[in-house]
Amino acid sequence: MAANAANFFFANAVRIRSLGIVALLALFTAGCGVNAIPTYEEQAKAKWGEVQNQYQRRSDLIPNLVETVKGFAQQERDVLTAVVEARAKATQIRIDASQITDAEALKRFQDAQQQLSGAIGRLLAVAEAYPDLKSSQNFLTLQAQLEGTENRIAVARRDYIEAVRIYNTELRTFPGILWASTLYRDAKPMATFTIPEEQMRVPNVKFTK
């Protein structure tokens, strides 16, 4: 009887201890940054989603802009078609979150977007010559929306660059590099923007009233 009870107690103690060790190990590894790589990866992907969103938002504004300008400046056909074509090209290139490790794809994306920025800039510059267009309520509204969107793009790009910096640094620095080479072998550094923000932005055309 007594031996049995002792045995039971012993077995329980072992089980409790092993459970404790597992719990400690889990705590230790979590503290050691085993979760850092997937966490930063998801954050960077979310930020990329925001970048994509804001470019999409700009793209959505363009048909309205083109229509408005057309109403006042029909003869500027070249500039208008350039914008429409650049938009079509830019919307074709979409990069979903799983592709952001591909630097080539990202470069294609930003080249297309930059082309579109240039085309919009030329359209706004042309609009300068049409006083009726400049003072039309529709155009002023669109212009404010476009400016706001450009600014949101800039913010989203900055947030993405920062998130990628954190993620890439984690992959290459001490606790992270261990996990990257063991648990997360498929985690690759992400690509980031190479064209400076100033070049991506639509040139700010100031209208003098």
């Binding site: 925001e50 793009i153 989203a156």
Partner: peptide, 8 residues
């Protein structure tokens, strides 16, 4: 939080 909305 803010994401660059607004006007200047």
């Amino acid at each position: 939080s803010f994401g660059g909305g607004g006007s200047s």
